[in-house]
């Protein structure tokens, strides 16, 4: 669902205070001011750690430089919730989550790389070069969402940025290594998908029966290892 940052031109985000809005009566969304970058995301992580400890909050969902806070009940005084969130944002120091490093072996190219040719056309680079830029990158898990265990990875070389498709692929395999806008990730479900596939990874990202079901967590570092390159 992310249409992140592919059409930045239209509405410059010149604001220094976060924007807080409601989703229904029990959830509040805080959008960080400024750029879509690691610094803003680190502050969102810090804010998440604070807000998740509030006794009236039942769930915190960090997104791309934003945080959704779901309250246990509809607050009696929504204005005070907004001031608490603003206050917590002001106090939130940028934190660096000591995440683990996850190495993901990738089979670049081949049958699953359905959009590699289109990406080469778009960026004007050879497929070999595209693959090299992708696996040489070091990525940070910004947040999880959209599908069980799916990590939005930040750190994609700008030359590889590629907008999501307007018409999604109807059946993309779980495991496809994909690019959506300025982000990359590994598909965790087989099904319709608007991101662009350039390879395939066999590493399971999610196990509902495990104590920690998702392999990735915000702040983790991800590296893609070229296990095989088939061009």
């Amino acid at each position: 669902m992310s249409r992140a940052a592919t059409s930045l031109a239209s509405r410059p985000l010149i604001r220094s205070r976060p924007k807080i809005s409601a989703i229904g009566a029990r959830a509040f969304l805080l959008d960080a001011p400024g750029e879509f970058d690691l610094a803003a995301q680190r502050r969102i992580w810090a804010l998440t750690q604070t807000v998740r400890q509030w006794p009236d909050v039942i769930e915190t969902v960090p997104g791309m430089t934003n945080l959704l806070a779901v309250f246990k009940a509809v607050p009696e005084d929504p204005d005070s919730v907004i001031s608490r969130l603003l206050d917590a944002w002001e106090r939130a120091e940028s934190i660096d989550i000591k995440g683990k490093t996850i190495d993901i072996p990738v089979h670049y190219g081949g049958a699953h790389a359905t959009d590699l040719a289109a990406l080469c056309d778009l960026c004007g680079l050879a497929d070999k070069e595209v693959v090299r830029l992708h696996h040489e990158g070091t990525y940070t898990v910004f947040a999880l969402g959209s599908a069980p265990g799916f990590g939005y990875l930040h750190g994609l070389d700008p030359r590889l940025h590629m907008p999501r498709k307007t018409v999604p692929s109807l059946r993309m395999e779980k495991g496809c290594v994909t690019i959506g806008g300025m982000q990359t990730g590994v598909a965790v479900l087989t099904g319709p998908n608007g991101w662009n596939s350039i390879g395939f990874a066999d590493l399971p990202m999610f196990d509902p029966a495990a104590e920690v079901p998702a392999l990735m967590a915000p702040g983790d570092i991800v590296r893609f290892l070229p296990e095989r390159i088939e061009l």
């Binding site: 969902v61 997104g63 791309m64 934003n66 959704l68 969402g145």
Partner: peptide, 13 residues
Amino acid sequence: EPVEMRSHGIVAG
């Protein structure tokens, strides 16, 4: 006018 949207958490409704 178009607006920049960044992926965010949502709830039913």
